[in-house]
């Protein structure tokens, strides 16, 4: 979709998108979260971005949309920015990048395990503690302070922790 003369602009747009974070997990960018389905740039500098939310009911969608429009719109060559919410290629936790997983762990959120499409209870019950890497943990509840988190307890370091739960 990207015009070949626009390589520098394309690079600048992706850099701008790196600065857009999910407000509920402000350490990870929407790029590393894997929320972007497509970025296209017309010859006239009109940018169209297809974004797909983590959870259908994610309350941060409008916030992130506005943030994208602001940050990408600041680039000189960009004439307009349109963000479409797109479910045609929907998000799952396998789309979080390796760097994103490390950032989640550093934030104190156990990264979601890679999966084959089906979530099983066992995947929630056997989670390594993000603080001490202990394996002796148990699931307290699959619902946490935000839609994307479950709550666990580590019997090794005696700390409660959260997991970014697999979907």
């Amino acid at each position: 979709m990207v015009n070949k003369v626009d390589h520098n602009l394309e690079k600048a747009i992706w850099e701008a998108l790196e600065a857009v974070k999910d407000p509920e997990i402000p350490v990870i960018s929407i790029v590393d979260m894997g929320l972007l389905n497509d970025v296209s740039i017309s010859d006239q500098g009109e940018v169209t971005i297809a974004m797909t939310p983590t959870f259908t009911g994610c309350p941060a969608i409008d916030y992130m949309k506005a943030d994208i429009i602001e940050k990408v719109g600041q680039l000189e060559e960009v004439k307009s920015v349109t963000v479409n919410i797109d479910f045609s290629n929907s998000w799952n936790t396998n789309r979080i990048t390796k760097r994103g997983r490390e950032q989640l762990k550093a934030f104190g959120l156990a990264p979601p395990p890679l999966h084959q499409g089906e979530i099983h209870m066992e995947m929630l019950e056997n989670v390594a503690c993000p603080y001490c890497d202990g394996q002796n943990t148990s699931l307290n509840t699959p619902f946490g302070p935000t839609l994307c988190r479950s709550i666990h307890y580590c019997h090794d370091c005696k700390e409660a922790f959260q997991q970014f739960k697999p979907v």
């Binding site: 479910f87 045609s88 929907s90």
Partner: peptide, 15 residues
């Protein structure tokens, strides 16, 4: 496409 997405979320409700 939307159903595929929603199904994954309802899985947690069922669990």
């Amino acid at each position: 496409a939307l159903s595929q997405k929603i199904k994954g979320e309802i899985k947690y409700h069922v669990l």
